[in-house]
Amino acid sequence: MIYLSAFADEISADPTEQLDNLLIHSIRFVEFRSIHDTNVLDLTAEQHEEFREMLRERGMALSAIGSPIGKIKADEPFEPHLERLDVALGLCDFYECPRIRIFSFYIPEGGAPEDHREEVLRRMAAMAEVAEKRGVTLLLENEKGIYGDTADRVKEILDAVDSPALGHAFDPANYLEVGQPVDKAWTMLRDRVVHFHVKDYDTKTKKNVPAGEGEGQIPKLITDAVAKGFEGYCVLEPHLLVAEASTGFTGPERFGDAAVALQTALSREGVTYA
Protein backbone atom coordinates (compact mmCIF):
# COMPACT_ATOMS: atom_id res chain seq x y z
CA MET A 1 0.00 0.00 0.00
CA ILE A 2 1.15 3.54 -0.68
CA TYR A 3 0.04 6.54 1.32
CA LEU A 4 -0.41 10.04 -0.02
CA SER A 5 1.17 12.90 1.89
CA ALA A 6 2.09 16.51 1.15
CA PHE A 7 4.26 19.43 2.12
CA ALA A 8 1.22 21.23 3.46
CA ASP A 9 3.02 24.58 3.67
CA GLU A 10 2.72 24.63 -0.13
CA ILE A 11 -0.96 25.40 0.53
CA SER A 12 -0.68 28.10 3.19
CA ALA A 13 1.38 29.21 6.18
CA ASP A 14 -1.69 28.73 8.39
CA PRO A 15 -1.83 25.21 9.87
CA THR A 16 -5.63 25.09 9.96
CA GLU A 17 -5.82 25.94 6.28
CA GLN A 18 -3.07 23.43 5.54
CA LEU A 19 -4.77 20.49 7.22
CA ASP A 20 -8.32 21.27 6.17
CA ASN A 21 -7.25 21.56 2.54
CA LEU A 22 -5.47 18.22 2.71
CA LEU A 23 -8.61 16.57 4.04
CA ILE A 24 -10.65 18.04 1.19
CA HIS A 25 -8.43 15.94 -1.09
CA SER A 26 -8.50 12.86 1.20
CA ILE A 27 -4.83 13.26 2.16
CA ARG A 28 -4.21 12.37 5.79
CA PHE A 29 -0.44 12.69 6.08
CA VAL A 30 1.87 15.71 6.26
CA GLU A 31 5.55 16.08 5.40
CA PHE A 32 6.10 18.65 8.13
CA ARG A 33 8.32 21.50 6.87
CA SER A 34 6.76 24.65 8.35
CA ILE A 35 3.78 26.43 9.81
CA HIS A 36 3.37 30.15 10.51
CA ASP A 37 6.26 30.78 8.07
CA THR A 38 8.57 29.14 10.61
CA ASN A 39 10.69 26.06 9.91
CA VAL A 40 9.71 22.89 11.77
CA LEU A 41 13.02 22.90 13.68
CA ASP A 42 12.48 26.46 14.92
CA LEU A 43 8.94 26.20 16.28
CA THR A 44 8.33 26.54 20.00
CA ALA A 45 7.30 23.62 22.19
CA GLU A 46 3.87 25.23 22.53
CA GLN A 47 3.47 25.46 18.74
CA HIS A 48 4.38 21.80 18.40
CA GLU A 49 1.85 20.86 21.08
CA GLU A 50 -0.85 22.81 19.27
CA PHE A 51 -0.02 21.29 15.89
CA ARG A 52 0.09 17.74 17.22
CA GLU A 53 -3.35 18.26 18.76
CA MET A 54 -4.66 19.59 15.43
CA LEU A 55 -3.39 16.45 13.72
CA ARG A 56 -4.96 14.17 16.31
CA GLU A 57 -8.33 15.95 16.14
CA ARG A 58 -8.43 15.28 12.39
CA GLY A 59 -7.11 11.73 12.48
CA MET A 60 -3.94 12.80 10.67
CA ALA A 61 -0.24 12.04 11.11
CA LEU A 62 3.18 12.85 9.67
CA SER A 63 4.95 11.04 6.85
CA ALA A 64 8.28 12.64 7.83
CA ILE A 65 9.90 15.63 9.45
CA GLY A 66 10.67 17.76 6.37
CA SER A 67 13.88 19.14 7.81
CA PRO A 68 16.56 21.31 6.17
CA ILE A 69 19.31 19.11 7.60
CA GLY A 70 22.18 18.94 5.12
CA LYS A 71 21.38 22.33 3.57
CA ILE A 72 24.58 24.02 4.63
CA LYS A 73 27.83 24.22 2.69
CA ALA A 74 30.13 21.23 2.92
CA ASP A 75 32.86 23.44 4.43
CA GLU A 76 30.65 25.07 7.08
CA PRO A 77 30.95 23.84 10.70
CA PHE A 78 29.24 20.48 11.15
CA GLU A 79 28.86 20.19 14.94
CA PRO A 80 26.12 22.86 15.22
CA HIS A 81 24.29 21.03 12.44
CA LEU A 82 24.40 17.79 14.44
CA GLU A 83 22.61 19.71 17.19
CA ARG A 84 19.91 20.58 14.66
CA LEU A 85 19.65 16.90 13.78
CA ASP A 86 19.13 16.14 17.45
CA VAL A 87 16.17 18.56 17.45
CA ALA A 88 14.70 16.71 14.48
CA LEU A 89 15.21 13.35 16.19
CA GLY A 90 13.36 14.65 19.24
CA LEU A 91 10.46 15.65 17.00
CA CYS A 92 10.38 12.12 15.60
CA ASP A 93 9.66 10.90 19.12
CA PHE A 94 7.16 13.68 19.79
CA TYR A 95 5.14 13.01 16.62
CA GLU A 96 5.73 9.24 16.61
CA CYS A 97 7.16 9.49 13.10
CA PRO A 98 10.57 7.83 12.64
CA ARG A 99 11.56 9.55 9.38
CA ILE A 100 13.49 12.74 8.60
CA ARG A 101 14.04 14.26 5.15
CA ILE A 102 17.68 15.38 4.74
CA PHE A 103 20.17 16.60 2.12
CA SER A 104 23.86 16.03 1.39
CA PHE A 105 25.37 19.52 1.72
CA TYR A 106 25.88 22.34 -0.75
CA ILE A 107 29.06 22.49 -2.80
CA PRO A 108 30.75 25.84 -2.00
CA GLU A 109 30.77 28.35 -4.83
CA GLY A 110 33.66 27.74 -7.19
CA GLY A 111 34.28 24.27 -5.77
CA ALA A 112 33.85 20.85 -7.33
CA PRO A 113 31.95 17.92 -5.78
CA GLU A 114 35.05 15.72 -5.73
CA ASP A 115 36.87 18.29 -3.60
CA HIS A 116 34.32 17.73 -0.82
CA ARG A 117 33.61 14.03 -1.27
CA GLU A 118 35.38 12.74 1.85
CA GLU A 119 33.85 15.37 4.12
CA VAL A 120 30.34 14.82 2.75
CA LEU A 121 30.61 11.06 3.20
CA ARG A 122 31.98 11.53 6.73
CA ARG A 123 29.05 13.75 7.65
CA MET A 124 26.46 11.49 6.10
CA ALA A 125 27.88 8.47 7.94
CA ALA A 126 27.89 10.36 11.23
CA MET A 127 24.25 11.39 10.82
CA ALA A 128 23.17 7.88 9.85
CA GLU A 129 24.94 6.43 12.88
CA VAL A 130 23.09 8.79 15.23
CA ALA A 131 19.76 8.12 13.49
CA GLU A 132 20.19 4.35 13.59
CA LYS A 133 20.72 4.45 17.35
CA ARG A 134 17.43 6.34 17.67
CA GLY A 135 15.48 4.02 15.36
CA VAL A 136 14.98 6.74 12.73
CA THR A 137 15.35 6.56 8.94
CA LEU A 138 16.97 9.49 7.15
CA LEU A 139 15.44 10.17 3.74
CA LEU A 140 18.14 11.54 1.44
CA GLU A 141 16.65 13.86 -1.17
CA ASN A 142 18.48 14.73 -4.39
CA GLU A 143 18.63 18.44 -5.21
CA LYS A 144 20.40 20.97 -7.43
CA GLY A 145 23.59 22.42 -5.95
CA ILE A 146 23.82 19.64 -3.36
CA TYR A 147 26.56 16.98 -3.45
CA GLY A 148 23.91 14.34 -4.15
CA ASP A 149 22.36 16.08 -7.14
CA THR A 150 22.80 13.20 -9.60
CA ALA A 151 21.93 9.54 -9.26
CA ASP A 152 25.59 8.57 -9.42
CA ARG A 153 26.45 10.63 -6.35
CA VAL A 154 23.29 9.64 -4.47
CA LYS A 155 24.25 6.01 -5.03
CA GLU A 156 27.81 6.78 -3.97
CA ILE A 157 26.55 8.19 -0.67
CA LEU A 158 24.17 5.28 -0.03
CA ASP A 159 26.86 2.72 -0.86
CA ALA A 160 29.56 4.41 1.21
CA VAL A 161 27.39 4.90 4.29
CA ASP A 162 25.75 1.48 3.90
CA SER A 163 23.28 1.98 6.74
CA PRO A 164 19.69 0.79 7.16
CA ALA A 165 19.04 4.26 8.60
CA LEU A 166 19.69 5.99 5.26
CA GLY A 167 17.42 5.61 2.22
CA HIS A 168 16.59 7.66 -0.84
CA ALA A 169 13.71 10.13 -1.25
CA PHE A 170 13.41 10.14 -5.04
CA ASP A 171 12.52 13.52 -6.58
CA PRO A 172 12.10 13.26 -10.37
CA ALA A 173 11.86 17.03 -10.97
CA ASN A 174 15.09 17.69 -9.12
CA TYR A 175 16.89 15.13 -11.29
CA LEU A 176 15.48 16.72 -14.45
CA GLU A 177 16.60 20.17 -13.31
CA VAL A 178 20.25 19.06 -13.31
CA GLY A 179 19.96 17.28 -16.68
CA GLN A 180 19.74 13.78 -15.18
CA PRO A 181 17.65 11.35 -17.27
CA VAL A 182 14.92 10.00 -15.01
CA ASP A 183 15.12 6.51 -16.56
CA LYS A 184 18.80 6.24 -15.68
CA ALA A 185 18.29 7.58 -12.17
CA TRP A 186 15.41 5.19 -11.52
CA THR A 187 17.20 2.13 -12.87
CA MET A 188 20.21 2.93 -10.71
CA LEU A 189 18.34 3.69 -7.50
CA ARG A 190 14.92 2.04 -7.44
CA ASP A 191 16.05 -0.64 -4.99
CA ARG A 192 17.18 2.13 -2.62
CA VAL A 193 14.06 4.29 -2.86
CA VAL A 194 12.06 4.38 0.38
CA HIS A 195 10.13 7.62 -0.21
CA PHE A 196 8.76 9.58 -3.21
CA HIS A 197 8.53 13.31 -3.65
CA VAL A 198 5.87 13.98 -6.26
CA LYS A 199 7.19 16.94 -8.20
CA ASP A 200 7.10 16.96 -12.01
CA TYR A 201 9.07 19.18 -14.39
CA ASP A 202 8.82 20.40 -17.98
CA THR A 203 12.33 20.87 -19.33
CA LYS A 204 11.11 22.98 -22.26
CA THR A 205 9.41 25.63 -20.14
CA LYS A 206 11.70 24.98 -17.14
CA LYS A 207 8.68 24.95 -14.85
CA ASN A 208 7.19 22.54 -12.35
CA VAL A 209 3.90 20.99 -13.46
CA PRO A 210 1.31 18.60 -11.98
CA ALA A 211 2.25 14.92 -11.86
CA GLY A 212 2.09 13.30 -15.28
CA GLU A 213 2.30 16.57 -17.23
CA GLY A 214 6.10 16.75 -17.32
CA GLU A 215 8.96 14.37 -18.01
CA GLY A 216 9.22 12.94 -14.50
CA GLN A 217 7.37 9.72 -15.42
CA ILE A 218 5.80 9.78 -11.96
CA PRO A 219 2.85 7.40 -12.61
CA LYS A 220 5.20 4.94 -14.32
CA LEU A 221 7.78 5.06 -11.51
CA ILE A 222 5.25 4.61 -8.72
CA THR A 223 3.55 1.76 -10.59
CA ASP A 224 6.91 0.04 -11.08
CA ALA A 225 7.82 0.52 -7.42
CA VAL A 226 4.52 -0.90 -6.19
CA ALA A 227 4.90 -3.91 -8.51
CA LYS A 228 8.25 -4.59 -6.85
CA GLY A 229 6.80 -4.38 -3.35
CA PHE A 230 7.23 -0.72 -2.43
CA GLU A 231 5.23 0.35 0.62
CA GLY A 232 5.54 3.92 1.81
CA TYR A 233 4.70 7.53 1.15
CA CYS A 234 4.23 9.50 -2.05
CA VAL A 235 4.53 13.12 -1.01
CA LEU A 236 3.11 15.99 -3.03
CA GLU A 237 5.60 18.84 -3.36
CA PRO A 238 4.22 20.56 -6.46
CA HIS A 239 6.10 23.93 -6.43
CA LEU A 240 3.62 25.19 -9.02
CA LEU A 241 3.85 28.90 -8.16
CA VAL A 242 7.18 29.29 -6.34
CA ALA A 243 10.24 27.02 -6.48
CA GLU A 244 13.14 28.24 -4.35
CA ALA A 245 16.16 26.64 -2.69
CA SER A 246 14.58 26.39 0.75
CA THR A 247 10.87 26.24 0.02
CA GLY A 248 8.08 26.10 -2.56
CA PHE A 249 4.53 27.38 -2.79
CA THR A 250 1.49 26.22 -4.73
CA GLY A 251 -1.55 27.78 -3.05
CA PRO A 252 -4.84 26.04 -2.27
CA GLU A 253 -6.32 26.19 -5.78
CA ARG A 254 -3.26 24.92 -7.65
CA PHE A 255 -2.62 22.38 -4.89
CA GLY A 256 -6.03 20.95 -5.73
CA ASP A 257 -4.91 20.61 -9.34
CA ALA A 258 -1.76 18.79 -8.21
CA ALA A 259 -3.65 16.42 -5.90
CA VAL A 260 -6.26 15.53 -8.53
CA ALA A 261 -3.56 14.98 -11.16
CA LEU A 262 -1.70 12.49 -8.96
CA GLN A 263 -4.80 10.66 -7.79
CA THR A 264 -6.17 10.42 -11.33
CA ALA A 265 -2.87 9.11 -12.67
CA LEU A 266 -2.59 6.47 -9.94
CA SER A 267 -6.18 5.33 -10.46
CA ARG A 268 -5.56 5.07 -14.19
CA GLU A 269 -2.58 2.80 -13.47
CA GLY A 270 -4.61 0.70 -11.03
CA VAL A 271 -2.44 1.70 -8.07
CA THR A 272 -4.25 1.52 -4.73
CA TYR A 273 -3.50 4.32 -2.30
CA ALA A 274 -4.73 5.67 1.01
Rank of each mutant, 00 (worst) to 15 (best):
I65G: 10
G216F: 00
F255D: 01
P210C: 00
P15N: 09
D37S: 13
P68K: 03
D42Y: 12
V130Y: 11
V30Q: 07
I24Q: 15
R99G: 05
L139G: 09
K206F: 11
P108V: 00
V271K: 10
Q18H: 00
F78H: 12
F105R: 09
A126E: 12
L240I: 14
S163A: 09
G248C: 01
S246H: 08
A6I: 08
G59S: 06
G251M: 06
S34L: 04
V136H: 05
F78Q: 11
K199M: 10
E253N: 04
L266E: 07
R192L: 05
R84T: 12
F29I: 01
Y175N: 04
G179Y: 14
I146S: 09
L189W: 06
P113N: 06
E10K: 05
P98I: 00
R117E: 15
K184W: 03
A225G: 08
D115W: 08
T150Q: 05
D9T: 07
L176P: 12
V136E: 14
I157E: 02
V242H: 12
P108A: 08
A13Q: 11
S67Y: 14
F105A: 10
I35M: 14
D183A: 10
M54V: 08
V260H: 10
I102N: 08
R58N: 04
R52A: 06
T272F: 02
T16N: 09
E76I: 15
A88K: 12
D171N: 13
K73R: 15
T247P: 00
P164R: 13
G179C: 03
L43G: 01
D93E: 11
G135S: 02
R52W: 01
L23D: 08
D14H: 13
T203C: 11
F32W: 09
F255H: 05
R268V: 06
H25E: 07
E215K: 14
A45W: 00
T272A: 04
E253C: 02
P252E: 12
L266A: 02
Q47F: 00
N21A: 14
V194L: 13
L221Q: 04
A13I: 09
P108C: 04
P219T: 15
M54H: 07
V130F: 11
P252M: 10
A126F: 07
E132R: 12
K204S: 09
F29T: 14
S5H: 03
T137K: 15
R268K: 10
V30W: 05
A151K: 08
F32Y: 15
E10N: 11
I102A: 03
I157F: 02
F170N: 12
V154E: 00
A274W: 01
L121I: 12
L140H: 08
D183L: 02
D191C: 07
V178C: 06
Q217F: 11
D86E: 13
K71V: 06
V40Q: 02
I107C: 06
Y3E: 15
R254L: 13
L41H: 03
M127D: 13
I69T: 07
